[in-house]
Design a protein around this nucleic acid. Structure first.
Length: 425
RNA sequence: GGAGAAAUGGCCGAGUGGUCGAAGGCGCACGCCUGGAAAGUGUGUAUCCGUCACAAGCGGAUCGGGGGUUCGAAUCCCUCUUUCUCCGCCA
């Protein structure tokens, strides 16, 4: 969330820039400012009583020590009313604070100045593209779900039997290819300076709040109600939350982590060609990169993450394009997001395989993730960033479709050593 | 799952109702000492909020979380969480 101070000092900027996200924040912002005034006033009243009470208590202590019990008891009487007042102010204050908090979390992150105006994904700005668009022969132009069946790589029906739609079973060379991709991505990320972590796949409420999934977006996550835990929709959640309530020193930055995890998403309301085959699943594998950096360097970090992800799709020889998301297509918490899409030649459509974002201090403020600046008194909120590097299913789909021939599916060169085979036939 | 013990600052560790935001040690930072370093020595060393100039000063809060008793709680009570020991179970 945005800090109160920022909203106070930049009321107009907040309102204006959120228009780019098609969000009218005027009423919210004003309600927040008003509520905070009330908070301050109430807090002052409460603290004044508190201070008086502390003084009296000390006096009573002294009196008892000096053996002046009578005077002490008189002072006790005096404190009764004060105590009552404190109680009233305290409960009023905590109510106001929780109302204020509820308002505060409703404000999305403000977009970076470079974010294009737009309503939906058609308004995204193409930054660049690369790779060679494959030309498939008519005799070898099957969508990946057919290929998966033909070569017995992925069994969607079996997943339905075991769990339900959207939980495929990878088999044989399909499973092996999946594992090869995971290892390839992790190795590449480590080479680029990201330290691997293997996080829990289930998180508590605090973690869900820290990265912005909770409140409001709980419908997207599977909820284990018995223990009040959530299955992670992305490794971003547990990995970023490693740094919740942490104060790092300046020279520890940047922090760079990579993590493989299964991801679980309810995807309520999705339908049609979007959910066909591997296009959209309830459980899928993803390798994530997460970075924590100083504010003044976070956009350089974002660029380097984008550049790194680009090398991954290049090494896999997939045709890709990079989009800068418009305000309307960005997530609630992001300040600037680049999406990567690869072309899936048989479906003849672009599939999103990575989303790389700078959250600036929006998550950090929720996480209380700060860093200590040499020679300065106050700690600063750090900036958090993350991106997929990469999400597996659609990469798998594109590899299968783009590399199909009448004789089988060619494995990209970089994966051969991970797979142990160079063709699926 | 059952029984018991514990949770204090970056770390270790005192503190069982009053001036304790918290002794002492370690670590760290700066200074002195030194040709340089070590040793020695001095000073400093949590976070948040309010007032204010995001200064100083002042006030408030925080000793795992929440609640309670009390004029007053790190200290007493309740509850939750976590850790350790023993038993059970298990990959």
């Amino acid at each position: 969330m945005l800090t109160l101070k920022f909203i106070q000092e930049n009321r107009k900027t907040v309102i204006d820039s959120l228009k780019v996200k098609n969000f009218d924040a005027t009423q919210l912002v004003d309600a927040i400012l008003e509520k905070d005034e009330l908070r301050k006033k109430t807090q002052q009243q409460q603290e004044e009583c508190q201070a008086q009470m502390n003084t009296i208590s000390k006096e009573i202590g002294m009196l008892f020590k000096d053996g002046k019990a009578q005077e002490a008891n008189a002072a006790k009487e005096q404190s009764t009313q004060l105590k009552e007042n404190i109680k009233v102010f305290t409960s009023r204050l905590s109510e106001i604070e929780s109302e204020l908090h509820k308002l505060l979390v409703q404000i999305p992150n403000i977009p970076h100045v470079s974010v294009p105006v737009g309503k939906c994904d058609t308004d995204n700005e193409k930054i660049r593209e690369g790779g060679v668009m494959p030309v498939l022969a008519d005799s070898a132009k099957q969508p990946h779900w057919d290929l998966a069946k033909q070569y017995d790589l992925i069994d969607f029906e079996l997943g339905v039997k075991i769990t339900g739609a959207g939980f495929p079973v990878y088999k044989g060379k399909g499973a092996r290819l999946q594992r090869a991709l995971i290892n390839f991505f992790l190795d590449e990320n480590e080479k680029a300076g990201y330290t691997e972590v293997l996080p829990p796949l289930v998180v508590n409420e605090d973690s869900g709040f820290g990265t912005g999934q909770l409140p409001d977006k709980e419908g997207q996550m599977y909820h284990v109600t018995e223990d009040n835990l959530y299955l992670i929709p992305t490794a971003e959640v547990p990995v970023t939350n490693i740094y919740r309530d942490v104060i790092v020193s300046e020279n520890e930055l940047p922090i760079k982590n990579t993590a493989y995890s299964a991801c679980f998403r309810r995807e309520a309301g999705s339908y049609g060609k979007d959910v066909r085959g591997l296009n959209r699943l309830h459980q899928f594998d993803k390798v994530e990169i997460v970075a924590i950096e100083k504010p003044e360097r976070s956009y350089a970090m974002l660029d380097s993450m984008v550049a790194h992800v680009e090398t991954l799709v290049q090494k896999l020889s997939l045709p890709y394009r990079i989009l800068k998301l418009c305000g309307g297509d960005m997530s609630f918490t992001s300040a600037l997001t680049f999406d990567f899409e690869v072309y899936s030649a048989a479906q003849e459509r672009w599939l999103e395989v990575s989303s790389v974002s700078n959250f600036e201090s929006y998550q950090a403020n929720r996480l209380k993730l700060r860093y200590r600046i040499e020679g300065e008194k106050r700690n600063q909120l750090a900036h958090t960033l993350n991106g997929s590097a990469l999400a597996l299913p659609r990469i798998m789909a594109a590899i299968l479709e783009n590399n199909q021939t009448e004789k089988g599916i060619q494995i990209p060169e970089v994966l051969v050593k991970y797979c142990g085979f160079n063709v699926i036939d």
